[in-house]
Amino acid sequence: MKIKHIIWDWNGTLLDDLDVSMAALNEVLKSEQLPLVLDKEEYRQYFQFPVIKYYEKVGFDFAKTPFDVLAKRYMDYYQPHSFACPLHEGAIELLKDCREKGIHQSLLSAAKLDFLFRQIDHYGIRSYFEHICGLDNIHAHSKAELAKAFVSKNHFDRSCTVFIGDSVHDYEVASYAGCRCILIANGHEHISKLEACATPVLKDINELKKLLSAV
């Protein structure tokens, strides 16, 4: 596998924010007097993009409380608490290894761009990325169009460009942009759903590091 450019996902892929994301979800569920999601595997089964579909699956009634209101409540909890999240084990070492190999790296996220920059700067890793792309809202609908335009604008060789993420949507985004994808199964989406995608699925960052060491 020849790789010239890696386009990283952020939440769940480099940032280990599963626990805080579950806590934020449960705060909103509690506010709506709905059953909490207490098991990580249950959460991973629910999770999907667009996030509005995932909200429907856990039981929110948008006729009672609009999605925009629920999303803001979620972010009101998630954003301040997210700065206590660690990066996944081995993440910084892998970013460093890729840079030393001459692999170009970018970050493309469904997160709101201004907050994404705050998170990246908090961890002191902005210098590893040549480009950082995010959305202009908190609704995490899709990053497919953003990805396709980004790859085209920068004239990347699609055969040597790999998206790395933790969700089915990351696979869909990579396919839409005409690139390859590697999925990591210790993020937000259940491994059974990832394995239904026609792409490699790895256990964690350390397994990814072994794969990329041969590049």
Rank of each mutant, 00 (worst) to 15 (best):
C98T: 15
C98W: 08
R99E: 14
E100D: 06
E100L: 08
K101T: 04
K101L: 15
G102D: 04
I103N: 09
I103T: 10
I103Y: 05
H104R: 13
Q105G: 05
Q105E: 04
S106V: 03
S106A: 13
L108C: 07
L108F: 10
A110D: 03
A110K: 02
A111C: 01
K112F: 09
K112Q: 11
L113P: 01
L113K: 09
D114P: 06
D114V: 04
D114F: 05
F115N: 08
F115L: 09
R118Y: 06
R118G: 03
R118T: 09
Q119W: 08
I120P: 05
I120Q: 01
I120T: 00
D121T: 06
G124S: 06
G124H: 02
G124K: 07
G124C: 08
I125Q: 05
I125P: 08
R126M: 08
R126I: 06
S127C: 08
Y128T: 02
F129T: 04
F129S: 11
F129Y: 02
E130Y: 04
E130T: 09
I132P: 01
C133Y: 06
G134A: 01
G134R: 00
G134L: 03
L135R: 05
D136N: 12
N137P: 05
I138T: 02
I138C: 02
I138M: 10
A140T: 00
H141S: 10
S142E: 06
S142K: 08
S142A: 04
K143Q: 01
E145D: 14
E145A: 10
A147F: 13
A147K: 12
A147T: 12
K148M: 12
K148W: 12
A149G: 07
F150A: 14
F150W: 14
F150I: 10
V151M: 07
V151E: 13
S152Q: 13
K153Y: 15
K153S: 14
K153T: 14
K153R: 15
N154D: 12
N154V: 01
H155F: 11
H155C: 13
F156S: 10
F156Y: 15
D157A: 14
D157K: 03
D157C: 11
D157S: 11
